[in-house]
Structure formats: C-alpha cells, structure tokens
Simulated scan of single mutants.
Amino acid sequence: MTAPVAPVQLHQVTRHYGMGEARVNALSEVSVTFPAGSWTAVMGPSGSGKSTLLHCAAGLDRVSAGRVLLAGQDITHATDTALTRLRRRTLGFVFQDFNLIGSLTAEQNVALPLKLAGARPSRQDVRAALAHVGLQDRVRHRPRELSGGQQQRVAIARAMVTRPSVLFADEPTGALDTNSARTVLALLRRMVDGAGQTVVMVTHDPVAAASADAVVFLSDGRIADRLPRPTAAQVAERLTRLEG
C-alpha cells in the first residue's frame, strides 16, 4: 500500500527580511515534513523562527529560497489567487486571539469560511461543527457572551467546518486558563485521531507540546532538535537548554 503524501513539506527553506547589513534570516535552510494524520508542535526561544515557519508552510509568507509543498502541490511560486483557493480547500487556522467577528453569532462565525469560499453553508453542518466542540447550546451567542475557552472552541469549529486536511494553530492555548486549554488540546487530539487530520501547532507551553505526537525545536532559524512522543518534562528540559 502506498503511504499517503505528507500534506506539508518544507525543503531547504530560507526566509530573510531586509537587505544588506539590515538583513535578518528568520529561517535558514529548514527541511521538515509534517506527516499525514499527525500532530507536531513547533517550539523554540523567542525569535527562533516559529511563526515564520508556520506562515511559510501555510503559504501566508513567501520563501526566499527552497520549496514548500502543500497537499502535494509545489506552492513556492504559486500565484496569490491559486494560494487562496488551495488554502480554502485544504487548510484551517486557529490563533491565540481567536479572530472572531464580534457582531456575528457563533453560528455565523463558523459559517464564514464557507461563505468566503463561495459556498452556501448548511445549517446542519455548521451546527454539527459547534456540537463537535460542545457548543450546541451557544449557537446564537456572540463572542462577548462567551468565555475565552468557548471562543477558542468556536474558532476550532470554524476551522473544522471546511473539513481541512491540515490545521495550523499558532499558540491556540496561550490566552486560556488551564481547564480551557485542556479542553482545546483534547479537541485537537480528536481531530488527529478521529478524523485523520494533520495539526501543526506553534506553542511555548511544554504541557501543550506534550499533547502532540512530536516536537520540532527551532533556534536561530534552524532546526535544533526533534523529540518524538514527548513528555512535558522532556520538552521543558530541551527548551531550557536552547534558551540557555
């Protein structure tokens, strides 16, 4: 049986900003593959290139050198229009600050990606996504009427409703209390184990990283270490070593 194509692959990716003496290398010849149906946490000291890696992998930022493959397609030189179409079909995004629209209900926020893609949202699909994150009784609530944990669960439902093969999460538990963070991590675990989706998560939290299948550590724009089947103690120790 042929192994499934990894949905996200970076080959010798470099991303620099500025010119001449002001040039900064955010990523330097980074090669990494995020296997299908897996959850990878990306960690490293501040300024190590974590968010840049996420943005390059998702086609939100252009690489200076190297190649990026998304869902088996080389997106390195793809047009903005082609990238937008591919992202809408393939990717979901969850951020630390939720990015919900305050004037819309939970139900309307979840339906938004489908509307932006030109589809007519099915109320059944939207409500099923909210039920999946335990918010079936909050469909008509607006963000200000929800706790931080509930808002992040709406954001996850919004990312799930298009059935993306890859979910990119940037500090998804960073603004949450311990119980809410635990709920969000359990939802991400279910997406991987139950639906076979791929999760790539930037985090600074060793406990959150320990929920993943593997951790990739960055330092000064390069991959410094990898840790399969992580524990929180192992993650904290390696992160301390990199920061020290």
Rank of each mutant, 00 (worst) to 15 (best):
M1S: 05
A3M: 14
A3H: 12
P4H: 04
A6T: 13
A6M: 14
A6N: 14
P7K: 03
V8W: 02
Q9R: 08
Q12T: 08
V13Y: 11
H16Y: 15
Y17H: 10
A22W: 03
R23V: 09
L27D: 03
F34N: 07
F34A: 12
P35T: 07
P35W: 00
T40Y: 09
T40E: 05
A41E: 01
A41T: 04
V42H: 04
M43W: 10
P45K: 00
G47W: 05
S48V: 08
S48N: 07
G49C: 05
K50L: 00
T52H: 09
T52K: 06
H55Y: 13
V63I: 13
A65E: 09
A65P: 01
A65K: 07
R67E: 06
R67M: 14
V68I: 04
L69F: 15
A71N: 14
G72M: 03
H77S: 14
H77C: 10
A78D: 03
D80L: 13
T81Y: 12
T81Q: 14
L83W: 02
L86H: 01
R89P: 00
T90Y: 06
G92D: 07
G92Y: 05
V94P: 01
F95H: 00
D97A: 08
D97F: 10
S103W: 05
E107P: 05
Q108Y: 08
N109W: 03
V110Q: 01
A111L: 00
K115E: 12
A119G: 10
R120D: 10
P121W: 02
V126A: 15
V126F: 10
R127L: 09
A128Y: 02
H132N: 10
V133R: 02
L135Y: 00
D137Y: 01
R138C: 05
V139S: 12
V139T: 15
H141W: 03
R144D: 12
R144P: 13
E145K: 15
E145G: 12
E145L: 11
G148F: 03
G149M: 08
G149I: 07
G149H: 05
Q150Y: 01
Q152P: 00
R153Y: 04
V161H: 09
R163F: 12
P164G: 03
D170V: 10
E171Q: 06
E171A: 04
P172D: 09
A175G: 11
A175Q: 08
A175P: 09
A175I: 10
T178F: 11
S180K: 03
A181G: 15
T183G: 15
L185I: 13
L188G: 15
R190I: 01
R190T: 00
R190H: 06
T198H: 00
T198E: 02
V199P: 02
V199R: 02
M201N: 03
V202T: 03
P206D: 10
V207N: 08
A209M: 07
S211I: 05
V216S: 08
F217M: 02
F217P: 02
F217L: 02
S219L: 10
D220E: 15
G221L: 07
R226K: 11
P228Q: 04
P228F: 06
T231A: 09
A233Q: 15
A233I: 13
Q234F: 12
A236N: 07
A236M: 11
E237A: 13
L239V: 11
R241T: 05
G244T: 15
